[in-house]
Computed example of a mutant assay.
Amino acid sequence: MTFFQLPNQAKKDKSIPKNAFYEYATSKQKQLFVDVVDKIRWQYKLASDTINLEGDEVQEIQIFEISLKQRKNIETVLPIIEKAIPYHIIFIISFNDEVMLYTSQKHAHPVNENNAVVDWVFKTDWFNSTSSKYNIVLKESLDKVFSDFCFQISNNSVADSKRDLKELIEKEQKKQDLTNQINRLEAQIKRTKQFNKKQPLNSELNKLKKELIYITEHNT
């Protein structure tokens, strides 16, 4: 699948064997590679020697396509590949006519520079491969290329995209934390039988929901 239209000089189009990542996986995770993943292809390498753009935090962006045998458990497999490769990776996950895009902000492991530590994951829902609204825009620097892509697949606003990736991650972490609090509180309310005890819980729930809406809609 040629999902992104990128310069020929950045094209790799090489098959990567699944067992290349087995040393980073448990026995259960290895079995997931066998059961879920069909093929892994290294599609593009975006770097100074291929697209004439450099970066400060982002030195290279690798683009991998992973075709699946079945559409499940992929988020257990991807962190293994992320850990094994210290560069930023954009994954094109395909199953039949559906696609999911996935990437993460990460940094080098403090002890083993050949490994990586994932800071935050950005991903889309599954969508039809013929109706994509996402692009990799080659401009300014590799940092900007990667940041722009993360903003796209996180469904943040155009106004947000003028900010840096660190701020986006902080915003996404706040949203996730609030969502977790809301879920816990909703479960607690379901378990609570007395009306007088439910009232303050419902008030707190409404407060958290308003805060989540505000953070989602505003640049804070």
Rank of each mutant, 00 (worst) to 15 (best):
E65A: 06
D35P: 11
Q5C: 12
V145I: 09
I80W: 15
I16W: 00
K197S: 05
Q29A: 13
K69G: 15
I61A: 03
I93P: 01
L101E: 12
K162Y: 05
E204I: 04
K210Q: 02
L53P: 02
N115H: 10
L138P: 02
K210V: 03
W42I: 02
K197Q: 02
V121Y: 06
K207W: 10
I63A: 05
N114F: 12
T76F: 14
F146M: 01
T2W: 10
N180W: 03
P17R: 07
N180K: 08
L178Q: 05
H88P: 00
I169C: 04
V117G: 11
F122A: 11
H218I: 10
F91N: 09
L205F: 07
F127Y: 03
N114W: 15
A108N: 09
E75F: 12
K162I: 01
N52S: 02
N112E: 12
D160Y: 00
L53N: 00
V37T: 13
E113V: 15
H107W: 11
D13E: 05
H88D: 09
D35E: 09
A187H: 04
F91G: 06
I66C: 09
D56M: 10
T2A: 08
I81S: 11
H218N: 15
K190W: 03
N73Q: 14
E170W: 07
V36K: 14
L165E: 01
L68N: 12
K210A: 06
L46R: 00
I215D: 01
T216Y: 00
T50Q: 05
Y102L: 08
F146W: 06
F33Y: 07
F151E: 13
P7N: 00
I169N: 03
Q70T: 10
F127I: 04
I169Y: 08
H218Y: 04
D143C: 01
W120P: 06
L46N: 01
P86W: 13
S131K: 10
T76M: 10
A116S: 02
S48R: 14
S129M: 14
D125T: 08
F4M: 04
H218K: 05
L138A: 03
V36W: 15
S104P: 14
I63C: 04
K14N: 07
I85S: 13
K190I: 02
V145Y: 11
W120M: 07
T130C: 14
A25D: 11
V137T: 07
G55H: 05
Q59H: 13
V158T: 02
I136T: 06
E23G: 15
Y87P: 12
Y102P: 15
V77R: 12
T179S: 08
N19L: 13
K139M: 01
D164K: 03
I189Q: 00
V145G: 15
S203L: 08
L208M: 06
L53F: 01
E217L: 00
H109G: 09
L205G: 11
D35K: 08
L212F: 09
Q181P: 14
